[in-house]
Structure formats: C-alpha cells, structure tokens
C-alpha cells in the first residue's frame, strides 16, 4: 500500500478525483453541485493524460539544438494536444449544462433536485387528472 502510494501516487490522486466527481454528480442533491462534480470528474481524466505524457528529465516538446533529436528527452506532446481538444469539448458540455440549469431555475425557482422532481411529479398528476376530466366531460 505504501509502495503503491510512493510509486503511483499520481494515479491514486486521479482515482480520488474521479470518485469525488462521481459522488458530486450522483449523491449531491443540488443540481449546480452536480455540474461541479462533472467538472471534477472530467478534470481527473485530463490530469491522467497529462501525467502519462511526462518524461523524467524531459523538456518542452520544441526542437532544441542543445537537447538534440532524441525523442526520449522531450515530453510527449500528443496527450497535451488531445486534452486541449477534450477541454474545449468539456467547456461546451458545461455550457449546455449551465444553460439547462438556467431554464430549470427560471421555471422552478430552485436548483434543489428533490423540489424539482416533486414539482414535475405534481405537474404530471395534474395533467393526468385534466385528462380524466375531459374523459368524463362528454358523459356529464
């Protein structure tokens, strides 16, 4: 266990962040906190990629005559590139999530999940009783 922490502490951190993110998304009842949890979850994945690209003693992946042509002396630039793309995608997702939250807040005046579910459930019930009302109408 101690060895694992010493050698792979970075992966433990990533796992911890993934777990915190999932907890935020699925255990917390506040919808805004769920979005924060989602951001933590995706950030943990970004960190995993960045960690994977590290080369001990490597330098920035810009060709430097002093360092030479040995690829082992530069960090791997591809994961950085992938994560840059993933961050852009992630920002778009968070944008859509926040837009949905704005609509939920404008309709219900709260971001508490229990209250929103309760209200939506009541709407459904009243819609059903409206339907029952129209059913009775022709006979009445």
């Amino acid at each position: 266990m101690v060895e694992l922490l010493a050698d792979r502490y970075w992966y433990v951190l990533v796992l911890l962040l993934l777990a915190i993110g999932l907890y935020g998304m699925f255990a917390l009842r506040n919808l805004a906190k769920k979005v924060i949890g989602m951001t933590i979850f995706t950030t943990a994945i970004y960190l995993f990629f960045i960690e994977g690209s590290v080369v001990e003693g490597g330098t920035a992946p810009v060709l430097d005559p002093a360092v030479g042509l040995d690829p082992g002396r530069y960090v791997d630039p591809l994961p950085h590139l992938l994560i840059l793309t993933a961050i852009v995608v992630g920002v778009a997702i968070v944008g859509v999530a926040l837009a949905l939250l704005v609509r939920i807040y404008r309709t219900h005046g709260t971001l508490d999940e229990d209250v929103v579910i309760d209200r939506l459930g009541r709407e459904e019930a009243s819609a059903a009783s409206d339907a029952a009302g129209t059913e009775r109408e022709p006979g009445a």
Binding site: L22, M25, F26, L31, K34, M38, F41, T42, I93, V96, A97, L100, L101, R103, I104, T107, V116, I117, L120, E123, E124
Partner: peptide, 16 residues
C-alpha cells in the same frame, strides 16, 4: 419542462 430536467440527467450520465 420535464424534458429539460431529463436532458440534464442525460447530460451527466452521458458525460460519464
């Protein structure tokens, strides 16, 4: 309204 909330839940799970 119901769809907005359903979409939000879908977004969370889809992102996972």
């Amino acid at each position: 309204d119901r769809a907005v909330y359903a979409s939000f839940r879908y977004l969370l799970i889809g992102t996972v």
